[in-house]
Simulated assay, not measured.
Amino acid sequence: MMKCIAVLLLCLASGAAAAAEDPASAARAASDQLEAATVQLQEAESARDRVKALTDTVQAYEAGLGAMRDGLRRVARRETQLIAQLRSREDEVADLLGILQTIETSAPPVLLLHPSGPLGSARSAMMLAEVTPGLQARVEALKRDLKEVQTLRLLQQNAAGTLHTGLAGIQQARAALSTAIADRTDLPRRFTYDPVRTSILISSIETLEGFASGLANIVEGEIAQSSADITAQRGEIALPVQGLVLRGYGAQDAAGISRPGLLIAARPRAMVASPTAATIRYRGPLLDLGNVVILEPQPDMLFVLSGLAEVFGEAGQVIPKGTPVGLMGGVTPEVGAILSLSGEGAGTDRTETLYIEVRLNDSPVDPEIWFRTDKDG
């Protein structure tokens, strides 16, 4: 019997490694982020600088929803792991329960009886005294695992309500942000945009390079001089959207076509912001690139952002760092879709792509010279 107990304990111990991370805490923290963003949205309505307040709110919602997605994935993985462990240990658990029940129900004289006589009985009692705390520890570990499964399932059920509130909040924040930007009149201007000249230029060119080279021809009058210099930020500029780098400078796509820029995978409806203070040189549809925003952070340098669904601001405006310039396309997943994503690998919900090109002295350069491309987005 003692040998059986020892083998049982060894088998149970081998499958009970503690989790390195706490998925439940991560999911709760994400829920707190979304609740804080909801409060932030209410406060943004009366903020003096509504554009900045709403920008911060959208970013807070995006961070909270992203954290919730990641937290639910971890919860699902942990629950699957625990259930698999418990199922693999069903026989051992049954034996454990049987042993404990035998110990509890056996009469004291039987426990003391041993074929080897009093000495064997004493040794048996000593072994039992040593093993019993181990058995109790395994029982407690089993109870903790079962309780954790119950907690994780409850978290997933409660997540639906939190996600619904968060998704409604971010939609409201995006709409309010778009309105606030359209109503903004306090930004300085470096030039007056001429839509007729722009149409003529677009109709006469076939490439992004041709359009970028002719930007000086779409203005009415002169362009005010700028002394902006972002040289000190070289290599440290944050990407204009939260995302993952799909292809780098000069990398070929599936069709074997290479482009001199970065392709970033982003989530649907993600906000795109100016990575530095810059002048909006152009914004709108261009060729087959979709909506494009061209920013001038310093003389003779352009940041070209293409693939947006919506664009904000007006050509000629000088905007501060972090100012929203547009939104990615796609449809924000509903609550059920987000919950179903909880078991999938990271990055599966980044369905939109933003193309970033950096042009210096009218020639493309590797954006990673200037941008900090964190691979985990």
Score class of each variant (00 low, 15 high):
residue 4 C to V: 09
residue 17 A to P: 01
residue 18 A to N: 06
residue 21 E to I: 13
residue 28 R to I: 13
residue 40 Q to R: 13
residue 40 Q to T: 09
residue 44 A to H: 12
residue 44 A to K: 04
residue 46 S to K: 15
residue 48 R to E: 03
residue 53 A to P: 11
residue 59 Q to Y: 02
residue 60 A to C: 10
residue 62 E to P: 15
residue 82 L to Q: 08
residue 82 L to I: 14
residue 84 A to R: 11
residue 89 R to S: 13
residue 107 A to C: 00
residue 146 L to D: 09
residue 152 L to K: 01
residue 152 L to M: 10
residue 160 A to V: 13
residue 161 G to N: 14
residue 166 G to C: 01
residue 172 Q to M: 10
residue 176 A to I: 03
residue 180 A to H: 08
residue 190 R to F: 14
residue 200 I to D: 07
residue 206 E to I: 02
residue 227 S to I: 08
residue 231 T to V: 05
residue 236 E to H: 11
residue 242 Q to F: 10
residue 249 Y to S: 03
residue 267 R to D: 12
residue 268 P to M: 10
residue 269 R to M: 07
residue 277 A to D: 08
residue 278 A to K: 10
residue 278 A to H: 02
residue 283 R to G: 09
residue 285 P to F: 03
residue 296 E to L: 06
residue 303 F to S: 02
residue 306 S to L: 01
residue 306 S to M: 05
residue 311 V to C: 09
residue 319 I to Q: 04
residue 322 G to C: 06
residue 331 V to Y: 09
residue 332 T to L: 15
residue 333 P to E: 06
residue 343 G to P: 06
residue 343 G to R: 14
residue 346 A to Y: 08
residue 347 G to T: 10
residue 355 Y to E: 12
residue 363 S to H: 07
residue 364 P to Q: 07
residue 368 E to V: 05
residue 371 F to S: 05
residue 371 F to A: 03
